[in-house]
């Protein structure tokens, strides 16, 4: 069987029900297919390659334990990326917290809160920091990670209308920001 040709749904079904060798192979293909996406999400949160790798491992371990035994099996109702996004995001935040606990001098609560808001004096960074966390997140998912609206809604467990309204508000805020004015005038 050419596992690489199977859809995510088919691979998930193999992970749920197939014999040991087939399930393992199906899981490996899912991992290979989606690890870059998970890494990008993690990097967007932690801005650190080592922490992002730990988040990557945690994310796929979380996925793995959904499959029997002892998991109940994963029923995929949306794209796998939508399922993986919140896991990856939370894993990254968790790694960030762990890292900060080992650095007491820098013990401020991590900004899950500062999602995609690195310390920088670049205009674009300042611009992004001006957005609320919710707006920053939808802008990142839509324009950096290129997720469709429906997938963002699944990933954030929000109605599509709420995602659209957050995106609209974020775009409007950026348009009205003096720091982004030149982008919109071109």
């Amino acid at each position: 069987m050419r596992y690489e040709r199977l859809s995510d749904l088919e691979l998930v079904e193999l992970c749920n029900t197939a014999d040991a060798a087939s399930a393992k192979r199906a899981f490996e293909v899912l991992y290979t297919r989606h690890k870059t996406f998970v890494l990008r999400v993690a990097l967007a949160v932690v801005h650190d390659h080592a922490l992002a790798l730990d988040a990557l491992q945690e994310t796929f371990t979380t996925l793995l334990v959904q499959f029997p035994p002892p998991g109940e099996g994963l029923k995929l109702t949306a794209r796998l990326t939508s399922y993986l996004y919140p896991i990856a995001r939370n894993a990254a935040i968790s790694q960030l917290r762990k890292a900060q606990r080992t650095r007491p001098d820098d013990a401020t609560e991590p900004d899950e809160l500062a999602f995609l808001a690195p310390d920088s004096s670049d205009d674009i960074d300042i611009l992004i920091t001006e957005l609320s966390r919710e707006r920053r997140e939808v802008i990142t998912l839509r324009y950096v990670l290129d997720l469709p609206i429906a997938d963002i809604a699944d990933a954030l467990d929000l109605p599509v209308g709420t995602v659209k309204s957050r995106l609209n508000a974020a775009v409007t805020q950026l348009r009205n920001s003096p720091k982004a004015k030149h982008f919109f005038e071109k």
Binding site: R40, L43, A44, H47, H49, A52, L116, P118, D122, I124, D125, I128, I139, T140, Y143, V144, I149, K164, L167, N168, V171, T172, L174, R175, A180, F183, F184, K186
Partner: peptide
Amino acid sequence: DIDDLPAELVAALKSREL
């Protein structure tokens, strides 16, 4: 029904990505 961001701004956002 959502206004798009200008391509240059999208490119700038993507360039921040590690």
